[in-house]
Design a protein around this nucleic acid. Structure first.
Length: 644
RNA sequence: GCCGGGUUAGCUCAGCUGGCAGAGCAUCUCUCUUGUAAAGAGAAGGUCAUCGGUUCGAAUCCGAUACCCGGCUCCA
């Protein structure tokens, strides 16, 4: 009997019975065999040294692919657990999966790991790697496995979980041994520890068993593993680059905003430069909404408890709300965590006709949410923030078209801010807990999906992840260094129109219930600014730059002319600064560059005489001399114009 | 909220086992009058986060509080 394996290039090759993945890889090429860490057979990943027991489509997983690194990292996690169990008798281990860019393992050791512990563990791991122990797979019955892991309660719990989840069919689990270390594991693994060429432990942290804070807290160690030292170094450089772009750091360096501790956790103040950046974003937002059929509304920051009872927030959302203020003889008021009830009240302020729908109320609404103290994170997760929030009230029939237009609008806005890679997530009904008719949900989900397809937006389904009151789309952008950020959200709501008894009069003169769409495009201005700062590393497009041009007089005698140039630029709408400090030209240029100003104008003797400027643009990194002032002003004014 | 780490000048950070609080940059003053990434000199700047404790003596040790940072969502 021979084995028929179909390779990715479409060819079918025959192999001896009992051939392993490594044999197949070697038959294709020695280089491939060296780089191989596993194979996939009809989608199932197998160890390289596992005999292939059936015909199928086979491909070789190499170590420099995401899938291959997954295998490396999984094996590295085992080696780390082995090192910890070696070094700390009495420690017990929980789970250790590969994750994006690395791996972790959770331990119960009775105390936290210190940085010195990590050094020791990493050193021990190196020893294990150098010994080059083989990973050996075995299958065990559930009962045998329970016996083997009798001293390790977390493992036992997992085994019992496998037993229940897979029902009568699954009576076996697999384990992997290397030397005396044994771990419950589905695999696959590299053939031996020597394959781990670039492993580094990153940090330790507390983590709850199965992520649930009611469970005991374990000690987690995060590490990373790559196919070679070079790839590891590249990853570490990437982390460094991300750190340089950190919006909290750049916010201080560029004097945009700060988080005074006297204010309280999660609350920011915006300095003049940050204020300007923010104003540009807000102006753009108002402008484009007004140009796209939205009506601008304004609502207060507090409202009576009854409003939040009607909306259901006090019932479902109370722990994220700032506590009540009591006044007027016991009347309770809450600071708003959301803007929707106010827009609903505007809708309800008079009777509505089908002729006015869809109604689109837009507001830059500032809300306050009591985020748990451990999760606030600069502007990305704050306790007070302003949403570019809108609520659209539409008939059921109009909904598909409205969603289509909305999605186009979202993408236009995100593109205007310099994002061009998007990904969406469509969250659908959870039948266990949701309100509204099947028809409502089906049409809504189909409309969302159709809108995504028409906009040619790649999307993933998040089945059952919709909230109880409606399905939603979240839109993620990819930034300049490849990170994903969730920004926009479009959320259908079948509950609030019901809660507030919203109606409109149809063409047949009957009362109908509108559908409500919540949506925020930038998300929150705060979070959006944070993402912009990190995306551009502080070097914003000219239209968003707080300072659009710096004028550098060469000597004191050029200052009058410098201010004249500044006045002309200001006249043309350019945000300009004159750096008249008692410093050298080089120093002033350096300051402007460090502050990421998009244009620097140097003026000296010849410029005063000829009414010209020396111009240095951020992207050119070289100066042009003797540009006529009129030309420079017109050029800068044009370059600084917002996208619309 | 929980686990761990942290908070020293506007910023970045030194300050060892308790014994007179420091540097660089920024700021201010003076000199220099400058043509594309840091001119020179001097000065000023601190309740060592806050409150309490231990001690002859606390930035340093202990406790509480506030704030910050890393995690707690990748599932054998």
């Amino acid at each position: 009997m021979s084995l028929q394996l179909k390779l990715p290039d479409g060819s079918v090759r025959s192999y001896e019975d009992g051939a392993t993945g490594l044999d197949v890889a070697a038959s294709i090429g020695a280089g491939l065999a060296r780089a191989a860490v596993a194979v996939t057979l009809d989608g199932e990943t197998l160890d390289l040294n596992r005999p292939i027991d059936r015909d199928g489509a086979l491909s070789v997983v190499t170590e420099n692919t995401e899938e291959g690194r997954h295998v490396l990292r999984h094996s590295a996690a085992h080696v780390m657990a082995q090192a910890v169990l070696d070094l700390y008798p009495g420690a017990t281990y929980a789970i250790g999966p590969p994750i994006t860019d690395g791996f972790y393992y959770d331990f119960d050791i009775g105390r936290p790991f210190t940085p010195e512990d990590l050094d020791r563990i990493e050193a021990r791991m190196q020893e294990i790697i150098e010994i080059d122990q083989s990973f050996v797979r075995e299958s065990l019955s559930i009962d045998d496995a329970l016996e083997l892991f009798a001293d390790h309660p977390f493992k036992s719990e997992i085994i019992r979980g496998v037993d229940e989840a897979e029902g009568a069919g699954a009576t076996e689990v697999s384990i992997y041994r290397n030397d005396s270390f044994v771990d419950l594991c589905r695999g696959p693994h590299v053939s031996s520890t020597g394959r781990l060429k670039a492993v580094k432990l990153m940090r330790s942290a507390g983590a709850y068993w199965r992520g649930d804070e009611k469970n005991p807290q374990l000690q987690r160690i995060y590490g990373t593993a790559w196919e070679d030292r070079k790839a590891l170094r590249k990853y570490l450089n990437r982390l460094e680059e991300a750190e340089k772009r950190d919006h909290r750091k750049l916010g201080t360096e560029l004097d945009l905003y700060s988080f005074p501790s006297d204010l309280g956790s999660g609350l920011a103040v915006w300095h003049p430069k940050g204020g300007l950046l923010r104003k540009e974003i807000e102006d753009y937002s108002r402008r484009t909404h007004l140009a796209n059929g939205y009506e601008y509304v304004v609502s207060p920051h507090v409202a009576k408890a009854e409003l939040w009872e009607t909306s259901g927030h006090l019932q479902f959302y109370a722990e994220s709300m700032y506590p009540a203020m009591e006044l007027d003889g016991g009347q309770k008021y809450y600071v708003k965590p959301m803007n929707c009830p106010f827009h609903i009240l505007i809708y309800k302020s008079r009777s509505r006709s089908y002729r006015e729908l869809p109604l689109r109320f837009f507001e830059l609404g500032t809300v306050y949410r009591y985020e748990r103290s451990g999760v606030v994170h600069g502007l990305l997760r704050a306790r007070g923030f302003t949403q570019d929030d809108s609520h659209i009230f539409t008939t059921f029939e109009q909904m598909p078209n409205e969603l289509q237009n909305l999605l186009d609008f979202v993408l236009m806005v995100l593109r205007d801010f310099g994002f061009d890679e998007f990904e969406a997530e469509l969250s659908t009904r959870n039948p266990e807990k949701s309100i509204g008719s099947d028809e409502l949900w089906d049409v809504a989900e189909a409309s969302l999906a159709k809108a995504l397809e028409k906009a040619e937006l790649p999307y993933q389904m998040a089945h059952g992840e919709g909230s109880f009151y409606g399905p939603k789309i979240d839109i993620h952008v990819k930034d300049a260094i490849g990170r994903r950020w969730q920004l926009s959200t479009i959320q259908l709501d079948f509950a609030q129109p019901e809660n507030f008894g919203l109606t409109y009069t149809s063409s047949e003169n009957v009362r109908e219930r509108p559908v409500m769409i919540h949506r925020a495009l930038l998300g929150s201005i705060e979070r959006f600014v944070a993402v912009l700062v990190e995306h551009y590393a502080g070097a914003f497009p000219a239209w968003l730059s707080p300072v659009q041009a710096t004028i550098v007089p060469v000597a004191d005698r050029h200052q009058d002319y410098a201010f004249e140039v500044a006045a002309e630029l200001k006249e043309a709408g350019v945000r300009v600064e004159v750096d008249d400090a008692d410093e050298t030209v080089g120093e002033k240029i350096r300051r402007a560059i460090t502050q990421k100003h998009p244009a620097i104008l140097v003026v000296g003797d010849s410029d005063v005489e000829d009414r010209t400027v020396g111009l240095r643009l951020r992207e050119d990194d070289a100066e042009q001399r003797g540009i006529p002032l009129d030309e420079a002003v017109a050029g800068l004014a044009e370059r600084n114009a917002p996208p619309r």
